[in-house]
């Protein structure tokens, strides 16, 4: 349980927890507590939480006009492994340096961050794991 207790502090600390990149994936979960897909849906679909639906369409009927900026998240659990999804959430610049997708678990290279958000990653390690668990359930019917 010690790792779990450390999590909220990790998000508030100036640097994030270490993780290992293998190829285009982070195969090992960031937290000891397994991701929860129900909480993960709230992270991904929450406009102010994950902010994902600003750019991505997906199985989110509550978004009446789907975003058109980024790939549709339908079926992403078929296209990518959990580790590949994890890397794209942690820091998608590691896949494409020019991406417009924010790095959700990295403070690298950020400038002029507003006072309310300074020194904090967009998501906590547990929120990343919850989102990965949810996205892995998105299979093409």
């Amino acid at each position: 349980m010690a790792a779990v207790v450390a999590l909220p502090a990790a998000a508030a600390a100036p640097s994030t927890m270490a993780f290992e990149v293998v190829g285009d994936a982070i195969p090992v979960a960031l937290t000891a507590e397994p991701g929860d897909p129900v909480r993960g849906r709230a992270v991904v679909a929450g406009r102010q939480v994950g902010t994902c639906v600003l750019c991505h369409a997906g199985p989110f009927p509550e978004e009446r006009v789907p975003a058109t900026i980024a790939p549709d998240l339908h079926g992403v659990g078929d296209r990518l492994s959990a580790g590949q999804i994890r890397l794209r959430l942690v820091d998608s610049r590691l896949v494409n340096a020019e991406t417009v997708m924010p790095a959700y678990y990295s403070l690298d290279g950020l400038v002029r961050v507003g006072a309310a958000w300074r020194g904090r990653t967009v998501l906590t390690a547990q929120q990343i794991e919850d989102a990965v668990a949810f996205l892995s359930t998105l299979k093409e019917e």
């Binding site: 406009r47 902010t51 507003g114």
Partner: peptide
Amino acid sequence: RLRQGQLNLSCAQCHDGLAGQSLAGS
């Protein structure tokens, strides 16, 4: 052109690159 803020986006990315796209429905 400066990428900035916690979401690390520049004015140019949205208003040159993504102009015309739907951002959260607008």
